[in-house]
C-alpha cells in the first residue's frame, strides 16, 4: 500500500502539483488520469522518488521515502518495478539479458536459476520466443511486454507504469492493460498506472485519480466515473467517442 499526502511541487513559479493526497491499495490497478500537462508524470516521479516534492509525504507500507537517505531509497527501489513510456530497455543487451539484469544485480541466484527465472517472466508475458533478440528488433508492444517481464523479475511489491499504451494500437494496448491487471492481482502488488487512454480507464481502473491543473479533481473507480457530475472530468471523458457511447448505452438501460 502506498499513501501520498499533501504533495506539492512547483517548477520556477509554476505550481505543478497542489496538495494531492491519495491511498493506493494492494492488488488494485490504480490509475492517474488527466490531460497532457496535468501533472501526472511529475506525480509519478514524486511517488517513485525520481523527483522530490517540495512538500508532502510518500509512504510505502509505513516507510516515508521523502525522509530516506540515498542508500535507504536505493534499497526500497529494489522492491519497485517500473514500466517506462518508451519501455527503456537496455539496447546493449538481448531481451533475456534485460530481464536477467535486476537478478544479476540484486539476487543471490546461480546463473542457471537466473536464466530460469528470466525465462519464466518472459513466458508470463508471452515473449519467450524473442529472448535472444535485441530490443530494436521488437515491435512497440513486444518492447513493453519485455519491460513488464523485467519489472516483475525480482517480484516487486510495487509496480509503476508511465503511459503504458502510448504509441500502441488498441488491440495491443488492451493486451498490455490485461497483463498489468492480471499481474497486479496474481502477485497482490500495488500498481500505479499513469495514462490518458480511456480504454484503460474503462478496462482496468480499480481506483482512478483525475488530475486537473495540478489538483486532484476527482477520485473513484471505473463504474463511478460514468456517473460523475464533475464537469472537468466529463469534458475530459467525452473527448473520447467510445466512452460517450458507453455512457449513452448505460443510460438507455
Amino acid at each position: 500500500m502506498i499513501e501520498i499526502s499533501s504533495i506539492y511541487k512547483k517548477f520556477d513559479n509554476q505550481v505543478v502539483l497542489n496538495d494531492i493526497s491519495a491511498l493506493f491499495d494492494n492488488g488494485k490497478t490504480n490509475l492517474i488520469i488527466g490531460k497532457s500537462g496535468a501533472g501526472k508524470t511529475v506525480l509519478l516521479k514524486c511517488i517513485v522518488g525520481l523527483l522530490n516534492p517540495d512538500n508532502g509525504k510518500v509512504i510505502y507500507d509505513g516507510r516515508d521515502i521523502i525522509s530516506f537517505n540515498k542508500k535507504e531509497r536505493m534499497l526500497l527501489r529494489r522492491e519497485i518495478g517500473m514500466l517506462f513510456q518508451n519501455a527503456a530497455l537496455f539496447d546493449s543487451m538481448s531481451v533475456l539479458e534485460n530481464v536477467m539484469f535486476p537478478l544479476d544485480m540484486f539476487s543471490t541466484m546461480t546463473y542457471k536459476e537466473r536464466v530460469k527465472r528470466a525465462q519464466f517472466c518472459l513466458d508470463r508475458v508471452n515473449l519467450l520466443e524473442a529472448q535472444d533478440k535485441s530490443p530494436d528488433e521488437l515491435s512497440g508492444g513486444m518492447q513493453k511486454r519485455a519491460a513488464i517481464a523485467r519489472a516483475i523479475a525480482l517480484e516487486p511489491r510495487y509496480l509503476f507504469c508511465d503511459e503504458p499504451n502510448s504509441g500502441l494500437d488498441p488491440q495491443t494496448s488492451l493486451r498490455i492493460d490485461e497483463l498489468i491487471h492480471d499481474i497486479t492481482k496474481e502477485y497482490n502488488i500495488t500498481t500505479v498506472v499513469n495514462t490518458h487512454d480511456m480504454n484503460s480507464v474503462m478496462g482496468i481502473g480499480d481506483h482512478i485519480l483525475f488530475l486537473a491543473d495540478g489538483k486532484l479533481s476527482w477520485e473513484g473507480n471505473k463504474n463511478e466515473i460514468l456517473h460523475t457530475d464533475n464537469e472537468t472530468l466529463n469534458s475530459f471523458l467525452f473527448s473520447s467517442d467510445l466512452v460517450r457511447k458507453v455512457k449513452e448505452m448505460g443510460m438507455r438501460k
Binding site: V48, L50, M74, L75, L76, R77, R78, I80, M82, F84, Q85, N86, A88, L89, F90, D91, F101, P102, M105, F106, F160
Partner: peptide, 17 residues
C-alpha cells in the same frame, strides 16, 4: 542516448547507482 531514452532512469528505479 541512455539518458534521453530513460535507460538511466530505469537503472535508478531498480536501485542501481
Amino acid at each position: 542516448t541512455m539518458r534521453v531514452t530513460q535507460q538511466i532512469d530505469a537503472l535508478e528505479i531498480m536501485g542501481v547507482n
